[in-house]
């Protein structure tokens, strides 16, 4: 296990570690401000169009959302455990925990992909999308979207009476899906970055880069991962559990 390398501009390893950690916390602050834009948009539209949001939320699959929540909670736990293993110098435990974290994150993305593609096929998109069934002007809705897709039983279109829906409400449902895809998309990008970080940590761990005196990178990577997890903890109820 290697010692931490002291960069030339620091006085001590402690100072270097504290500095890195404060830097990460401030970066996480900027991340929160970054997401806050969409949370504000969500709040504004939900406050002014509560009905539309409640209606639109039914189209989201709560079970899949819950499964993803559990996956991320588990991955956050293993990320924290990985830090502990690094501090104790347990290489095997460190690598195992990082691996579970990556697997959970990949599982999350898999489920997310399933949800996205389902919504795309059903036309559950924002109002400006080509395949959207929530276009303000019914004449613009593509004919195949009205009748569902081949082999796919009863379409969402029929079950929720989109055709007879008030056009104003329909626009707002489109906005809901716009916000849904922006928020989960931005979060998804962060998950992908997190997977990259975890794989990098795994590679470094395999080369004995970490130990009781040198676990800064694992610590910071885990901090980032916890934030990604935490944002999902807010997204899940705000998007899936409106009633």
């Amino acid at each position: 296990m290697s010692q931490a390398k002291l960069a030339h501009h620091f006085e001590s390893v402690e100072q270097q570690f504290d500095t890195a950690k404060l830097g990460m916390w401030i970066f996480l602050l900027t991340e929160i401000m970054f997401f806050s834009v969409l949370f504000v948009a969500y709040t504004v539209y939900r406050a002014s169009h509560a009905d539309a949001f409640q209606y639109a939320s039914q189209f989201l699959d709560t079970n899949l959302g819950a499964a993803n929540t559990l996956l991320l909670l588990l991955s956050s736990f293993t990320a924290a455990w990985a830090v502990r293993c690094a501090q104790l110098g347990q290489k095997r435990g460190l690598m195992l925990n990082l691996l579970v974290t990556v697997v959970c994150a990949l599982g999350f993305m898999g489920i997310k992909y399933h949800e996205y593609s389902h919504k795309y096929h059903e036309g559950l998109l924002w109002g400006g999308a080509r395949h959207s069934i929530f276009k303000a002007d019914p004449a613009q809705v593509l004919p195949e979207m009205k009748h569902g897709h081949e082999g796919g039983g009863e379409s969402v279109w029929e079950s929720h009476h989109v055709e007879t829906m008030d056009p104003a409400l329909k626009k707002q449902v489109g906005i809901f899906f716009g916000i849904y895809f922006c928020l989960t998309g931005l979060h998804g990008i962060h998950v992908l970055v997190g997977i990259g970080v975890m794989l990098w940590l795994l590679w470094r761990a395999s080369r004995d880069h970490f130990g009781p005196d040198n676990f800064t990178a694992v610590d910071l990577g885990a901090l980032y991962w916890h934030l990604v997890d935490l944002i999902w903890i807010f997204l899940f109820p705000l998007l899936y559990l409106i009633s």
Binding site: V37, V40, A41, V44, Y45, W126, G127, G128, A129, A136, A168, K171, Q172, G174, I175, G178, I179, F181, C182
Partner: peptide, 21 residues
Amino acid sequence: IMGVGIFNPELGGDPVLFQHL
């Protein structure tokens, strides 16, 4: 690029929200 209408009044969005942000 994709027509997400968060600031577009034609799609139910609010341009003043952009000004606030």
